[in-house]
Design a protein around this nucleic acid. Structure first.
Ligand SMILES: [Zn+2]
Ligand SMILES: [Zn+2]
Ligand SMILES: [Zn+2]
Ligand SMILES: [Zn+2]
Lengths: 556, 556
DNA sequence: AATGGTCAAGGGTAAT
DNA sequence: ATTACCCTTGACCATT
């Protein structure tokens, strides 16, 4: 700017076109853009553009929009190579590894395609929109505002309202079973309780919260079921789905009706995209990557250091910490699922009745709430998370909890067989069966099916799911952190952790890490769609009946 | 790092474990560590660790703590001499030459032993602790803060408050003698004024400062004497000296009493170590070498170049400059001391009364202040010192002035005969006599005795004392220099100078240089102990009474 | 083969 | 937060 600095007299900053002071981070750039990029990749950032992300970057405008400046930095190819200091090697070490740089280029291409093809669609895909509007949610759900404090209370060390793996709400006439399902037996994936049907009206009175939970579950299930057969809701829906009428007026027996496991289903992928009667534009496809999401992917891949001996021990420790937490708090682990699935198969082959109960779908949705609780526990036991400022933990949970829930529930869904297990692995239903649900609700499940396709394609494992979920839970681009740097560092650590695992365990799958990262925007899109959808559903339902517990009111 | 440089394919950098690029400075090392070490031994450094000096050195952390990186360089045996144009040793390179390399290895061993045996003790032995806390000292001594400017004023060329070799405060009933003791006759070592006892209340009115000095001396001596017989001070002291009570309530006649010159003294080395009721941990022994001190020793020995034709003239010039300055500004030169001592002996043998005056000990301490002045003059006349930035001169003086004072006063003490001369070489007392002093004060003198043992053992000469004192006065590891490189260069020059002198004059004493260097940490330890001790003494004394002159307030 | 120097690029920082 | 300025680093190179 005030430049007398340009040593190469005729070189210009690739970012802002100021006189370049040299070759920095892979491009000719000025001191300002050099420093700006360094700050971005070393500190916590959370940038926002208020101008449709089309700000021109010039020496005089470059400081008016950090978002667009960083975007431009990426576009022109700025990148921190794995190396550190000292002179850059002259001789290029060509094509040695499919490093973060390559991912960058790909992402840049991706972005150029996507962002130009559907620019307006990204307007509401910002990291911070609906789920953080607590006040709005509070109004929406009819909760008094002070209920919003619960999450922070919980985070400050108080007990969670829901115990881990607590009783199932499947039937409203019974709640918990006596058999312990706590964390104690979770570590043994083979311990799966499928043998007992749900029953017995008395909950184990482990604590009051537990009873409260069951009461809430019963009520919630009731409301949910009622809602699902609400004629008005269906008609209000502006969905063009021609079969929306079919869901109208149905009652419980309907559930047991359309349970033909064969796939006479119409094309699934054409359904899921249209998410919303809510009036807010949303991504046309779960695989769409918005500008924000792309930026995060870039940042994540930027963090990855190919060589990180200095933090090897840390990475290993964090890795096992995350995995432990995942194994402890996630119920839907593959071995358990496979065993449960096999058991259902066996029953089926033995001619037993494996018909899902009538409340399958409401049960499924109701189960999301305790799942959120477990996700919170997962995060709290994730290395480093507790060390964040409590308010930052809350922000992250609000942002990421449902993303993680979706990720955890992915194995419930089999996109090929078009079947779906309930989160407690007791029953199996078919996608076809949800055709009877009101369209907004059905969309939710459609989304699960679509998303599960992505997950299945990526062949993600349990361990990788845990590591990825940590990343879903720590997104440094969400605005408002007290200690953005700490969040950034944790995020950085978590990518490194995932990268380390993937490259070590799948050395001959160079694309695997990238494909896992690409699940992040997919989950995010689905999660956003669900949250928006739930908003509009709640808006149309009598608020009093759909009072979520405070914690969930904060997240949804 | 980005290394494809390692010609020896499987060799790793002994410092950071990166791929080595070859055999450098005696070890396999990478280009980075090679360059780093080269910079360290050729340029000014002043490193500090903020992590307990335990930083791991890896390719990715090596740039985060220069201190620990250099420490590791030394630990693995890097040395300028080690492989000077030599080929990588095939098998073992044992016992090649008694060069600085050996000193290194020895020092490394020394450190390993010491640092592991008493790790915590180094926590406060940093170069910069107490003596630099000017503000604290100012409070402690009751000086108004603006008095602290005096040192810098003096350094910027103003006259010193004390004239050289000015009158003695020995007895409080009299002060200066008329006989001139100024710089004029100092250059002639044989001119020693021992004939006249101290007296005559009128100071030579050479200048106002001189009068001020004498007034201050009188007052100071008074206070000091009073303090030394302060009952409360003795009891407050937490020293375990069992005979501390003996000093209580004594008055002047006590001094003449317990003067049996025989050594009924208890073991001296066990006493001097406990420096402090001040709460700061201190070395257990004067010969203890802290981590910082060790690092300095290493650096110093590293600087020494066996061949330095390129700077031979410079070294010779600096050498004679230092020696000149020492001879001019140090009063306690051997010839003078020997003459004085002989005179006292003669008197004694002649049956004259050689009993030290009652104020011998307070006089001794009071004389430290003008000694500091002379040390400042010594440094200012030391080649190169004036060329340093004024603030760096001040830092160095604050750090080293008292070290040099102690070094200069070493010949006062005879650790074998257990006698001690007063700094003006007029009286001789016995160590036993100081048994009557309050323990904290007695400790000071005990330290002098212990330290003098080290000096006597090393057989250091006057010239060597001067050269060593220059090194005591220029410690490049003290933090905060404006021009650290200049300090470093000067330090480097001074070691070379000492080394040159020693190897030339004592070619058959290969260990002599090392043993002289080893005096540095010893002096430093004793100096630190004294400073700490004076702190706590001042803290317990009425501040107004112990107002040191501004300059000394800055140093103490 | 090792040393010492070079200088582009990274990183820190003070002033704004 | 930005950035001009400055120092450090280390890959490479000429020298010994
Ligand atoms: Zn620029
Ligand atoms: Zn913008
Ligand atoms: Zn190295
Ligand atoms: Zn360190």
């Amino acid at each position: 700017m005030t430049a007398r600095h340009q040593l190469a007299p005729n070189s210009k900053c690739a970012v802002c076109n100021d006189d370049a002071s040299g070759f920095h981070y892979g491009v000719d750039s000025c001191e300002g853009c050099k420093g700006f990029f360094r700050r971005c990749i070393t500190q916590g950032i959370n940038f926002r553009c208020s101008n449709e992300e089309k700000c021109q970057i010039t020496p005089f405008t470059r400081n008016s929009c950090q978002y667009c400046r960083l975007k431009r930095c990426f576009q022109v190819g700025m990148s921190r190579e794995a190396s550190r200091l000292g002179r850059r090697p002259k001789k290029v070490m060509k094509s040695s590894s499919i490093s973060s740089r390559d991912l960058h280029v790909q992402l840049s291409k991706h972005m150029d395609t996507k962002s130009t093809s559907n620019g307006p669609s990204s307007s509401l895909s910002n990291w911070d929109c609906p789920q953080l509007a607590s006040a709005t949610l509070s109004d929406m759900f009819g909760c008094p505002p002070d209920m919003m404090k619960n999450l922070s209370q919980m985070m400050s060390g108080g007990g969670l309202p829901f115990p881990p793996f607590s009783g199932q709400p499947g039937d409203n006439s019974h709640s918990l079973k006596g058999k312990p399902e706590g964390a104690a037996n979770i570590n043994n994936p083979s311990v799966i309780d499928l043998s007992q049907s749900a029953l017995s009206g008395s909950a184990s009175s482990r604590n009051v919260t537990h009873n409260d939970l069951n009461k809430w579950r019963e009520k919630q299930f009731e409301v949910m079921s009622k809602y699902m057969h609400n004629k008005e809701l269906s008609s209000v829906s502006d969905h063009s789905m021609s079969d929306s009428d079919m869901a109208v007026g149905r009652t419980d027996e309907v559930v047991s009706k359309g349970s033909s496991p064969t796939s006479t289903d119409t094309s699934p992928s054409s359904f899921m995209s249209g998410s919303s009667d809510s009036g807010v534009p949303s991504p046309c496809s779960i695989t769409h990557v918005s500008e924000e999401q792309l930026q995060r992917l870039r940042m994540l891949s930027e963090y990855v250091q190919e060589s990180y001996e200095h933090m090897y021990d840390l990475v290993v420790e964090v890795q096992s910490g995350i995995i432990d937490s995942h194994m402890e708090h996630c119920y839907q682990l593959r071995p358990r699922i496979n065993a449960a699935s096999a058991e259902i198969d066996a029953k089926e082959q033995a001619g037993e009745d494996v018909k899902p109960p009538p409340g399958f779908w409401p049960h499924w949705l109701t189960e999301l709430m305790p799942a959120i609780e477990r996700v919170v526990r997962f995060l709290k036991d994730t290395p480093g998370f507790r060390e964040l400022p409590i308010n930052d933990q809350i922000i992250l949970i609000k942002k990421g909890a449902y993303d993680i829930v979706m990720s955890q529930l992915m194995p419930m869904v089999d996109p090929d067989r078009l079947t779906i297990l309930d989160p407690q692995l007791k029953y199996r239903n078919t996608k076809n069966d949800c055709i009877h649900l009101p369209p907004p609700i059905r969309m939710l499940f459609e989304d699960y099916f679509v998303l599960s396709k992505e997950f299945k394609t990526s062949c993600i494992t349990d361990t990788e799911t845990g590591l990825l979920n940590a990343l879903l839970g720590v997104n440094s681009l969400v605005p408002g952190f007290e200690n953005a740097k700490a969040v950034k560092k944790l995020e950085c650590l978590f990518v490194q952790t995932l990268h380390d695992y993937v490259t070590k365990n799948y050395p001959n799958q160079p694309k695997r890490f990238e494909s896992l990262l690409r699940l992040i925007p997919a989950v995010d899109n689905a999660s956003q769609a669900h949250i928006n959808s739930l908003h509009s559903i709640k808006a149309k339902a009598p608020p009093s009946e759909l009072a979520f517990p405070p914690l969930h009111a904060e997240i949804w």
